[in-house]
């Protein structure tokens, strides 16, 4: 009798002892000296941002900044997507080949998003024309859903890309034609339904119309920036934010500019699911031309706020060499990827 009770107790004790001993051994060799708080705090400060490097190179965010009308491609290849023909009235006919394709894009290092794209890139190719030019876009839908291209700017109703009968079904194509008016910084995007989904999935791009008579100071460097975000887990809220798609990309690859030169930023907000975005520049102020539709600045500031599909032209001359941050001053967006650096040289 006693034996049984003793056996019971010792079995339980043995099990528990092995258990605790194993756990304690694993932990006990941890150093217990006072931590170096200064070092730890400094180290923690340095760890904001993304982990690792971008794994694919099919989108070059630096090249995108200065690319319009496919000017990044060698002439022969460029001709497949873009052709310009002088018209008798002195303007140009600009013809574009757009194709829609479903594609996985890398929106943060190692994070892939199944996007819907114009020509395999998000944002889509930048269209740039002079006031009064004729724009003709041949759109082929190689995707899996009905799509369209809806341009902000003047055009006739049948070129709007928003009526149900305007949708280009998978495998079909459509030719959009309109005059490039009014001058300013505009956008285009898919207007298939639900529109929020079609934009959020990546179907948008910048559309710039230069004034025929430009009275503004001449820009030394022109940069295209499209602010956007990605709902990677499709829960109705963005997880990753960026300017030009890739989170933190201009932290690792700062934008090179020269001190004193006139830098002109064509900025558009194509962020979905969040009502407001913003642009803030460190240590410098810029002239803002709202929607780019006037040739006199509306504002001299370092921070602007933009709703969905709003856009502006920002003119800035950097005062001193050095590294200057730019980011959304909706700071939670900046800490989820919408932040970058200008490297200003002598």
């Amino acid at each position: 009798m006693k034996k049984i009770s003793l056996t019971l107790i010792s079995v339980v004790a043995a099990i528990v002892a092995v258990f605790v001993g194993y756990r304690l051994l694993a932990i006990i060799h941890q150093p217990s000296e006072e931590p170096d708080y200064e070092h730890l705090q400094q180290h923690a400060q340095e760890n904001i941002g993304a982990t690792g490097k971008y794994q694919t190179d099919d989108f070059d965010a630096t090249e995108f900044l200065t690319t319009w009308n496919f000017n990044n491609l060698p002439p022969s290849e460029r001709a497949q997507y873009y052709n310009e023909t002088p018209l008798p009235n002195g303007t140009l006919l600009r013809e574009y080949k757009f194709y829609i394709v479903d594609k996985e894009i890398e929106v943060a290092p190692g994070v892939f998003y199944p996007a819907w794209t114009y020509n395999g890139q998000v944002p889509g190719p930048t269209i740039r024309a002079t006031e009064g030019d004729t724009i003709r876009i041949s759109l082929v839908n190689g995707g899996t859903k009905p799509h369209s291209a809806h341009f902000h700017g003047f055009h006739s109703a049948e070129m709007d890309g928003s009526a149900f009968e305007d949708m280009v079904l998978p495998g079909e194509n459509f030719e959009y034609e309109f005059k490039a008016l009014p001058f300013g910084t505009h956008v285009y995007h898919c207007h298939s339904y639900p529109v929020s989904q079609h934009i959020s999935k990546g179907l948008y791009g910048a559309y710039i119309v230069d004034p025929k008579v430009d009275t503004r100071p001449k820009a030394d460097k022109e940069l295209i920036m499209v602010m956007n975000g990605f709902d990677v887990n499709v829960d109705g809220a963005n997880e990753v934010y960026a300017v030009n798609t890739q989170a933190f990309v201009y932290n690792d690859n700062p934008i090179h500019v020269k001190k004193g030169e006139l830098v002109r930023v064509y900025l558009a907000n194509m962020l979905e699911l969040d009502p407001v975005n913003s642009f803030h520049l460190h240590a410098n102020f810029f002239n803002e031309y709202k929607t780019g539709t006037s040739q006199t600045p509306d504002n001299f500031t370092d921070t602007i706020v933009m709703g969905q599909a709003e856009r502006s032209i920002l003119d800035v001359r950097f005062r001193e060499p050095g590294m200057y941050m730019f980011h959304s001053h909706v700071t939670e967006f900046s800490e989820l990827g919408w932040t970058g650096m200008f490297m200003v040289m002598e």
Binding site: N47, I48, A50, G52, A108, P109, G110, E335, L336
Partner: peptide, 18 residues
Amino acid sequence: AQAVVNEIIWKFTMTPGN
């Protein structure tokens, strides 16, 4: 691929691997 702390993307290391 990425870690987010309180709505902030933060660098991390992972063992044994990612």
